[in-house]
Structures are given as C-alpha cells and as structure tokens.
Design a protein around this nucleic acid. Structure first.
Length: 423
RNA sequence: GGAAGAUUCGCAUAGUGGUCGAGUGCACCACCUUGGAAAGGUGGCAAGGGGGAAACCUCUUCGAGGGUUCGAAUCCCUCAUCUUCCGCCA
C-alpha cells in the first residue's frame, strides 16, 4: 500500500513503475475515485457536524424547540443514510484499487518481463567436473536411503516426500548450523505460526492477489507459504522503540504452497514440493532509503555466506521489473548449481519493500522529531529445506555414490565426513 | 464441545441513553519549589482522515462489525480475543 497523497502527487512515477513491473494499473481511475471519495466525505462530515451541534442543543431546548430540532435531525439522518450507502460503494472501489497500486521499483532494477531477463550480478564457486556420470539427487538419496518419494506420494499425495536417516539428519544439521550462524549475527530466532488469518496475509501483500497459491482451512484460516507472513504481522498495530531498530529476526516455519501455476513442472524429487521448511531473515528498519539498500545487501550477503560455507556453487541475479512482486522495490535471487539439470535453480530470494508492508500492517516508530513513521521492511531466505539439499548432495557426490559432508556440517553429523550406506 | 464473566486514552480503573468534546490514580514530559534530590504544586500528555498558505475548522475512534434512537462507552444482534469452570486431549 502506498500513501494516497504520494500517489496523487506522483502519478507519473507510479505509471512508470507499473510499466517496468509489467503490471496493468489504471492510475487515472484511482485518482477519479479518490476525487469522488473526498467530495462525498466533505458532504457527509458537514452533516455530521450539524448533527453534533444540534444534539448538544437538544438537551437544553424547550419542549417545542426540541420537537422542531428532532424533526430536522430525522431529515438529516435520512439524507445521511443514503449518502453513506453511496460512500460505502465508493470506498470499496477505492480500497480495491489502493491495494493494487504497485510499489515503485528501484532505478537499478533491470528491465524485463520474465525471470529469463534477470541480470546476473555475481558468480561464486566452481562448477564441479565429474570424471564419472553424476547421479541425480533422487538416485543418490534413494540409494543411500535418505529419502522415500514413492511412499511420500502414497501417504501425502502428489509432490509428497519423506526424508529419512542421513537425509533427515542432514536437514536437522542445516537448521542447526544456519540458526547458530544467524544468532551469532544478532538475529533473534523465532518459531512462527504457519496457520494464519486472512488479514495477516493481506498485511504482507500475499492477498488478495495470491489466493490461488494458498491452502485454506475450513476455519477461514490459511497456511502461509513463508514465515515472513507471521513474522511481519508480529508487530502489526504497534509502535516500535526506535532504539531497537534495525530489528533482525530469524523465523523458522513450515511453508505450504499449492504450486497452482506450476503443474507439470519439476514433478520429481525435492525441487518443488507442497510442504517445506524455511529459515527466513526478516528485518525492520527506519524509514530511510539508504538504510533499506544497505540492509538489503547485508541480508543477501548473509544468505550467500551460508551457501559458501556449504560449498554450493551459486550465482546472484537482480530480478527484472516483471519478476518483482507488487510490493517489492528490488529483489535478488540466489540460484544454486544443480549438476543433474546443468543449470542454476532458485534457492533464496532477498527483497526490500520500503513502507509498503508496514503501511498495511500499521507498524510504526517514533522518529527523532517525535513523529510517528512507518518502518521499512526487508526479508530474505536464510535457508529453505529441502530444496538446497539437491545441490548439496549432487555437487558433493563421489563416484561410488557416497556424499561428502561439508565441513561446517560435520559437527552436527556426529563428526562424520561422508555419507555412505553402511555406517 | 458446553457454561459464566470480561474487553474503556501507556498501565490500573470510573462510567447503565444527552452535562463523556470520557473522570480518577500511576507512569511520562515541562515548569515552580530546592544547594541537589525526594515530596509537594501548576500545566501538558492519543492516533488517523478531510479542508486550509497558515492560524485554525471539522470528522472518526471506548475489542470489531451491524442495529435501535434526534442522540450510544451505556440498549439489542453477530463475531474476535481473554479469564474461570466442565468435557476431551499430545
């Protein structure tokens, strides 16, 4: 959500932003509805002012005066009822348009309409050359009894999976390693709900646009696709002490995605599953563009450090305008090398929003002048699981089908350096 | 799942149809008093929207949404949340 005053004063900026994001948005329609809204509001408020004025008079009026005043008010009341009915309609239209106004992408965001036009900004690590035919993570994990996909679908349905034995241990090791790493950096670890209310999802910008990709329960609650949702809403309708900013949180949660638009894509293995886990960085800072930019780079680096420690080759791309969400100002994706596919696949996403989310969620702080301002928000994956296991396992495989455990994970894996079937 | 009670300006509370433009205490801020402090005294102490160059005017908000009424913190309905009790339960 953007400020309506800002929208009125910066029509062209909004238009240009929508163009860059390849979104259809009729700004003139919004401005026209807003005009209407303000005119009606003026008329309604004048009538209410009269009501208040007369109400005060009625108490002290003589019985005759009283009758006359009440008669007048009955008239005003009837007029007000019609006007308010019309006003409600206009407000509905206004709200619908307001939540659809896209945030303005940063100047540095590359032009483009799909992820194919994302711009590579850095490459890290060496793509492994195998002197044997490398196996897929599915083959490796099944052979090592680390995962069971057949029983996964039997029990859970399409895209279901089980992680077991070293597969499960490796996953636990990753969580623990990543958590330790971020706690050292001053992030406060949180385990956050996935089952959230509708308003919560509207707050972070996933609804009303993303209805299709969310699971819904019979209690009109939803299953969130990321811990960002609950973590952002944690401070909704609150005023945060400025001294506590920037506030850095590491949220752990199960994540659920219907993958409604991806039927037939990545149907095998751990690439695209309905149910996964994620450690997510969520940051709130002061309403300052440069601070947002600096923190955005910082949380991207934080995520990269994890990939480096795990020795997974990756590159970072700056997402093009068309690949940005409604509220995002800028986004980097980290994509990890997947040997069996011979390409990089997304594992992380780091974005900043300015006050787009905090306006919807009403998260504020008091600045040095004592004025209440909306905080800026950012978030980035710290590490999801199990998707990066694909790269971790495939890149670290040996000719005999065993898997080398990255050094940083060994303390969490009983000191072992390699995963073999017989241990 | 059932029953009862509750939700008021940071906290605690008053308030059962007009004088509530919400009182009081605590906390907080400023000033007075003091060598300094405490105590005491005086004053201040919300957010959001609309109009206006500004001074200022005005509307909304007593958990949320509806309703009754000329008028609702107060009466009625629905919902949310919390507390206590019963039932069930990892």
């Amino acid at each position: 959500m953007l400020d309506i005053k800002f929208i009125r004063d910066n029509k062209d900026l909004i238009k240009e932003g929508a163009r860059k994001k390849h979104l259809e948005f009729d700004i003139d329609a919004l401005i026209a509805v807003d005009e209407k809204r303000r005119t009606m509001l003026g008329s309604i408020e004048a009538k209410k002012a009269r009501q208040n004025e007369v109400s005060a008079k009625i108490t002290t009026a003589t019985p005759e005066e009283r009758q006359a005043l009440i008669a007048e008010m009955q008239l005003v009341k009837a007029e007000l009822a019609t006007e308010e009915e019309n006003f409600k309609e206009v407000m509905k239209e206004w709200q619908t348009l307001m939540v659809a106004v896209p945030n303005i992408p940063d100047m540095s965001v590359p032009e483009g309409s799909t992820d194919e036009e994302n711009a590579e900004v850095r490459v890290w690590g060496e793509i492994p050359k195998f002197d044997f035919t490398p196996k897929t993570h599915i083959e490796l994990m099944e052979a090592l009894d680390m995962a069971d996909f057949e029983r996964g679908t039997k029990v859970s349905g399409f895209r279901g999976y089980f992680l077991k034995n070293d597969g499960a241990l490796l996953n636990f090791a990753l969580w623990q390693f990543v958590t330790d790493n971020f706690v050292k950096k001053g992030f406060s670890p949180m385990i956050v709900p996935s089952l959230v209310r509708r308003e919560t999802l509207i707050g972070s910008g996933y609804l009303p646009q993303g209805e299709e990709d969310l699971y819904k329960t019979q209690d009109v609650d939803y299953l969130a696709g990321t811990g960002e949702v609950a973590t952002m809403a944690y401070y909704s309708d609150e005023v945060i002490d400025k001294a506590k900013l920037p506030m850095k949180m590491l949220a752990f949660s199960p994540c659920f995605r219907r993958e409604a638009g991806s039927h037939g894509k990545d149907t095998k293995g751990l690439m695209r599953v309905h149910e996964f886990f994620k450690l997510e960085q969520v940051v709130l800072c002061e309403a300052d563009h440069q601070q947002s930019v600096d923190l955005h780079e910082e949380i991207t680096k934080n995520a990269e450090e994890i990939m480096q420690a795990l020795n997974i080759p990756y590159h970072v791309v700056a997402n093009c305008g068309g690949d940005l969400g409604l509220g995002q100002v800028k986004k980097y994706d980290i994509e990890a090398w997947v040997p069996s596919e011979g390409k990089y696949r997304e594992t992380h996403s780091a974005s900043y929003f300015h006050d787009f989310q905090s306006r919807r969620l009403n998260i504020r702080y008091r600045d040095t002048e004592g004025k209440l301002r909306f905080v800026h928000s950012l978030n980035s994956t710290a590490l999801p699981t199990p998707r990066p296991l694909i790269s971790l396992i495939e890149n670290n495989q040996n000719a005999d089908g065993s898997i080398n455990i990255p050094e940083v994970l060994r303390p969490y894996m009983g000191g072992r350096s390699v995963i073999t079937l017989n241990r």
